[in-house]
Amino acid sequence: MKRLAYFPGCAMKDQARPDEAGTLHALALLGYEIAEIPRWNCCGTVYSLAQDDLMRHVGPVRNLLRVQGMGEKRVLALCAMCYGTLARSARFVQEPERLARINAFLDTEEDFRGGIGVVHLLTLLRDEVGYEKLPSHVKQSLNGLKVATYYGCMLLRPREFAVDDPDRPEVMERVLEALGAVPVPFPERTECCGAYLTVGRKDIVEERVGRILRSARGGGADLVVTTCPLCQFNLTERRPPEAPPLPVLYLGQVLGWAFGADEPTIAALLVGQPTPGEPVSSGGAR
């Protein structure tokens, strides 16, 4: 078993529980001993764009400090937003002067020494597990299910923290292919869902969500997959009446199902598909 420090983030303990459950199920089968960070705090969510807003980095850095306290060198995030915020702060404190100021502020903690890496589930599967390892763990193949891989913005922007090529990402497609799904052409897959405008400007979010779902349906998708709880919320709760009624699941739910966990939505979608359970050879419709 490989020990891996894990930062859940607030959503995984509330709205996004199914994502966490599926992911942890799969990671255990892949040989990871998941160690949740003790006393973690909110990642900081929307990171500040101000150059000198040191205060906004205190929260994320405190989490990285807990990882250091565990004696670990890196930390896993599942949520696209948590990943972005933690990765950004890890980089922010690479500059010694900023690190010194944060440490001076955190006067009741041991000093943060930096050097903690932040990984996302997708990069872990690609860079460490390897796509080719995934099929051998598949207990129930996605069996040709047509999926639309929705990245949104947080996984790919800003460029320094992108989990993949921001213009032509493929990591989510490759993972889903390895599980037996068929990714469909989906031009709007990296478009923003509207994010926090969901609070004050529902109209803008609805317009975008409608466009994203039409694009997914246009490619022939039966299911939309995402890694962000806010995207998931917007794509399901803010869809305009005329938008295609596609189900939206987290990557962790899909991964968990393929690795043998229960997931009623996928089971229902696969009813009527040919020969369930047979691994389907991958090969992109991309």
């Binding site: 006393r39 705090n41 909110c42 900081g44 205060m55 906004r56 205190v58 929260g59 405190r62 502020f105 955190l106 009741t108």
Partner: peptide
Amino acid sequence: CVACNTCTKACPQKLEVMD
């Protein structure tokens, strides 16, 4: 909340306020 922990330091009851 920016997780500054100032609340915890202020608490006379020694509660983990930020947590």
